[in-house]
Amino acid sequence: MLKIENLQARIEEKEILKGINLEIKPGEVHAIMGPNGSGKSTLASVLAGREAYEVTGGSVDFLGKDLLELSPEDRAKEGLFLAFQYPVEIPGVSTTNFIKTAVNEKRKYQGLDPLDAAQFLRTMKEKMKLVQIDQSLLSRSLNEGFSGGEKKRNEIFQMAMLEPKLAILDETDSGLDIDALRIVANGVNELRSANNAFLVVTHYQRLLDYIVPDFVHVLYNGRIVRSGTKELALELEEKGYDFIKAEVEKETV
């Protein structure tokens, strides 16, 4: 589904990604872990197409298309979804209206008719249950005055509505209490299927107790320095990131 080869990216003159290789197949959940500043969020942003980052090398194939050639909106319409670490507020635009616009833009791209009000409402009701989100929240301005937990649930709700092929969760666990974390994780687990894939970016192992990954990768200084199964996450949790740093430094000397 997604094949990243030797991906390098920078912001201004500062190299952040220094050669990422990663392949994700349908049905898989990959976790990217790493200390602050290792490039985790940059990777998520580059894949989603935030223009502030300049790709300086490598390639990304997404479902047979050159992802890096696509505009951010076309990436989204091809089935790539990013759950933001910091979801933005749009005053005066209700969440419902926003999602409806997004869903219908995607349908237009796929050559489908827009959903009418009844169809849309039906789908929405169905997906609301997944993340235990309240109707009243959806009629309020997008993310305006939402608590941290509500914002993250709203991200997962949007994901459910848009049914992406590949969803990237950028530190979705940050700022969540344990109940909210469980709700968000349950939502993700409900959406897991043999046809889609997830890339879960996180700093802590905690989230991976709920969303159990097939593969765990450790990002450090712009490179994936370790890959393994979920046991790797547990090892990290136990030993902290310093042991990875020490190992990497020993190797490079």
């Binding site: 990436r75 005066g92 616009t101 949007q158």
Partner: peptide, 19 residues
């Protein structure tokens, strides 16, 4: 944020100002 949800910039601006 709008782009990432598949909404192009022109539509996004219209959405934001109408909001």
């Amino acid at each position: 944020y709008c782009n990432q949800r598949g909404i192009d910039t022109e539509t996004a601006v219209a959405l934001i100002i109408n909001g």
